[in-house]
């Protein structure tokens, strides 16, 4: 892969990859780190990647994996940090407040994460990527009616969880 091809076919994916990473890690700085790592890795592996037909698909997979790794290592870090400060008995914020400070959309992200795989995929394609039903059918290979069933099930679950969380918080 030469620099020109890299500039034409890999770099333009950056915002798409960023939105994906942001959905998974929930923090802009960490999502940027993920995208940077992916783009540099793709350049380093350019000779191996000559045979890859679906380069955007490859980049998407790599971004997803790195972003998931990042949330795992962050979870580990925050648990250790939490254990260290616990005995200082400082007034700790409620979970809702804590997430509101660091990560505004933790609630919706955790709800989406809990959805069954097929429902989550279709919900994300529609409500995050803004694809039409026809595009989702093409992308997933599901029938139009199946796509609508999965989407409505996902949205109903989200609705119930949002109501629950709101009632608990009040």
């Amino acid at each position: 892969m030469e620099m020109e091809i890299y500039k034409q076919s890999v770099l333009p994916l950056k915002n798409q990859l960023y939105r994906l990473a942001l959905r998974i890690v929930g923090r802009e700085d960490q999502a940027q780190d993920v995208v940077q790592e992916v783009l540099i890795k793709v350049w380093e592996k350019r000779t191996e990647l000559k045979g890859v037909h679906n380069l955007p698909g490859y980049c998407v997979r790599m971004t997803r994996n790195l972003a998931i790794d990042k949330t795992r290592s962050r979870h580990h870090q925050s648990t250790t940090a939490l254990l260290q400060v616990q005995h200082f008995a400082a007034p700790t914020p409620t979970p809702y407040e804590a997430t509101a400070e660091n990560d505004t959309f933790q609630l919706i992200r955790s709800i989406v994460k809990k959805l069954p795989e097929a429902q989550r995929e279709i919900f994300e394609l529609r409500d995050f990527d803004g694809l039409s039903y026809k595009e989702i059918v093409e992308k997933t290979g599901q029938s139009m009616s199946q796509v609508k069933v999965y989407l409505s099930r996902a949205r109903y679950k989200i609705k119930l969880e949002l109501i629950n969380a709101y009632d608990n918080h009040r």
Binding site: N15, Y18, E28, F105, I108, R109, D127, F128, D167
Partner: peptide, 16 residues
């Protein structure tokens, strides 16, 4: 209660 899902969608769609 439903604001979060739509505000989040907006945020993701506009993230650059």
């Amino acid at each position: 209660p439903f604001a979060e899902v739509f505000v989040y969608q907006n945020k993701i769609a506009q993230a650059t």
